[in-house]
Amino acid sequence: MRSSSLLLASAGLAAAAPFSYPLANGFPNLNSTEMEQVYKLAGGTPPNGALPSSLKPNGVQALQLIAANELFEVAFFTELVHNITSKVRGYSDGNHKYIIDTLTSVINQEEVHVLAANGVLASANKTTIQPCQYDFPVSDFRSAIALAQTFTDVVLGVLPAAQGLFAADGGDEAALVPIVGSIIGQEGQQSGYYRFLQKKVASAAPLLTGGAPQFAYTAISQFIVPGSCPNIEVIGLKAFPALTLESTPRANNSVQTFSVSGAVSAANATLVYISGQNLPVSVRVSNVTMAGNKTTFAASFPYQSGFDRGLTLGALVAGANKRFNSTADVAASTLFGPALIEVD
């Protein structure tokens, strides 16, 4: 598991071989016996109703993004359980039967999510997503759980957008809306558990932070070994260059430091925060310094202006003093991001 510039500054540094599929049970290619075992450990099966026979382009992209994310999550939790049960240094805090049983259930539940998303794509004769190789920016149990909470929060932000796409497309896709809603609930149960393990209030806020497909795809991409994906490019999304939070914000107003690999002009850039279901908050960029290809800058973090507890997304956008009415508009103008900011 290795470090990533996008994610939490608290993540440890460790060098390890990339995670590769297939799993020990053969996943993602399972025979009927192996599949039944997955369902047993997951506590349930994929939907057994009729699958859509046709999908519109937005629906295809949403399902492919979901499949790519779930494949990454299966890899992450499989490696985490392996590190715990193999007594890898730093993972002893997770060596409890309840934790291992819970994370084992999560692995199999995420496998079911992959099977469901790729199953719908196959039913409509669309390209299914195949796994990549992955590196993860953690070296102990605590940082792994913190990271799991963060990427689960990102997923919870983008799945409602998928529901909106399926509803807008109508036809066969309308039946996917409640199915994705049930996945949102399941991922919410996970997030609350990871918060509990960190002794945080289990439910972060009344309304969780929304997201955009580009931001979710960028987050996934930070874990992928370059050149290791058979076909992830078919999703049609491009990962943004990283926006790294160099400081540690608290639940109050402050000034934070960010960095990017590339040039930034304070006269032609704006930092935008997305928190809860509130309108995006834009702040000015200041104190820009460049050393080599790394640019560092400061920006206010107006937490007490209506930010929600839990995940806040930060994005550096083109143009000075830019204002936005939606997360989608922010994503369309993003130069670097997202910074994943957890405040509790």
Results as ranks from 00 to 15, higher is better:
Gly181Ile: 10
Ala9Ser: 14
Gly26Phe: 11
Asn287Leu: 04
Gln109Tyr: 07
Val154Tyr: 09
Glu233Val: 10
Thr244Phe: 01
Ala168Phe: 08
Phe76Pro: 02
Ala239Leu: 01
Glu73Met: 11
Phe27Ser: 08
Phe27Pro: 06
Asp140Lys: 13
Leu245Gly: 01
Glu110Trp: 01
Arg89Phe: 07
Phe215His: 07
Leu207Pro: 02
Asn125Arg: 03
Gly310Val: 02
Met1Leu: 08
Leu8Val: 04
Asp329His: 05
Val114Gly: 08
Gly319Cys: 07
Ile184His: 00
Val38Asn: 05
Ser53Pro: 00
Gly210Ile: 14
Leu245Ser: 06
Lys200Met: 14
Leu65Ile: 12
Gln61Asn: 10
Glu73Asn: 15
Val272Trp: 05
Glu233Met: 09
Ala62Glu: 09
Leu115Ala: 14
Asn69Trp: 03
Gly157Lys: 03
Phe301Leu: 06
Gly49Leu: 02
Lys40Asn: 08
Leu147Val: 06
Val138Lys: 00
Pro28Ser: 07
Ala239Ile: 08
Asn253Ser: 11
Gly188His: 06
Thr270Asn: 09
Val288Met: 02
Ala148Pro: 09
Gly276Gln: 08
Ser228Asp: 12
Gly211Val: 01
Pro213Trp: 15
Ser92Val: 02
Ala75Gly: 11
Glu246His: 04
Ala167Asp: 12
Pro206Asp: 12
Asn321His: 12
Gly188Ala: 11
Pro131Leu: 06
Thr78Phe: 00
Thr209Val: 09
Lys199Arg: 11
Ala202Cys: 03
Leu335Thr: 15
Asp172Glu: 08
Leu159Phe: 07
Gly164Thr: 05
Phe297Met: 02
Thr85Pro: 04
Thr244Met: 01
Ala219Thr: 04
Ser275Met: 07
Ser54Lys: 14
Glu187Phe: 03
Ser3Pro: 03
Ser53Val: 14
Gly90Ile: 04
Glu79Met: 10
Asn321Ala: 13
Asn48Ala: 15
Leu65His: 13
